[in-house]
């Protein structure tokens, strides 16, 4: 077992464990921290999968942006002071059944699927030798093959920001 694989299992276990913690805890802030660990573990796994740009983006967007936003949200939406923000659980049985059924289905599909992977695995094996980073390839792709989705995504982002800002504005007339 190679080192890479060991790292993968370690980070994978960490991600699952922290996600389970996020579910298990009633404290919202603890949950946010559980999520933080999960996101970080995933970023590590991305690196292991030779997706360094995605990993960096993961850190910047999720850990640096989304999670901070969530924390702000937790703080802004609480009246209680001096004790932890709580979140009870409901639908435990039905949710557990549905989730486990979906997991069963997914696992079965994943295990029984007949992957028609191209011969590119060998190429992929050689990839680290050629390029240290995937940033150049992604940059080229983004302004050539995926130029239109790229622009549309930027527009979506802009509109979402504007919308979020508008929605959260205090209504003066109320």
């Amino acid at each position: 077992m190679s080192l890479v694989l060991i790292f993968f299992y370690v980070f994978g276990f960490l991600a699952i464990a922290s996600a389970a913690f996020m579910l298990a805890t009633k404290n919202v802030l603890y949950a946010a921290f559980g999520l933080l660990v999960t996101l970080l573990s995933l970023a590590a796994i991305f690196i292991l999968l030779f997706a360094d740009f995605v990993a960096i983006t993961q850190l910047m967007v999720y850990v640096g942006g989304v999670l901070v936003l969530i924390l702000f949200g937790v703080m802004l939406s609480n009246q209680v002071q001096g004790r932890a923000v709580q979140s009870e659980s409901v639908n435990g049985i039905s949710g557990g059944l549905v989730a486990s059924a979906i997991f069963g289905g997914l696992a079965y599909l994943i295990l029984s699927a007949d992957y028609l992977l191209p011969e590119g695995i060998t190429v992929a094996d050689a990839a680290p030798a050629n390029t240290k980073s995937s940033i150049i390839a992604i940059g080229i792709r983004l302004i050539t093959n995926f130029a239109l989705p790229f622009e549309v995504a930027s527009l979506i982002l802009l509109i979402a920001l504007m919308g979020a800002a508008y929605i959260s504005t205090e209504d003066k007339h109320e």
């Binding site: 993968f8 299992y9 994978g12 991600a15 699952i16 996600a19 389970a20 996020m22 579910l23 919202v28 949950a31 999960t38 995933l42 796994i45 999968l49 969530i70 949200g73 937790v74 939406s77 923000v85 709580q86 979140s87 009870e88 659980s89 409901v90 639908n91 435990g92 039905s94 949710g95 557990g96 549905v98 989730a99 486990s100 979906i102 997991f103 997914l106 696992a107 994943i110």
Partner: peptide
């Protein structure tokens, strides 16, 4: 294994969406 890990995380996310009462969670 990677796919199975994704599946586990996916189901945990679903479980969180279904069971939690706090909107942020």
């Amino acid at each position: 294994p990677v796919l199975l890990l994704g599946a586990v995380l996916f189901c945990l996310g679903i479980l969180a969406v279904i069971t939690k009462r706090h909107a942020i969670v």
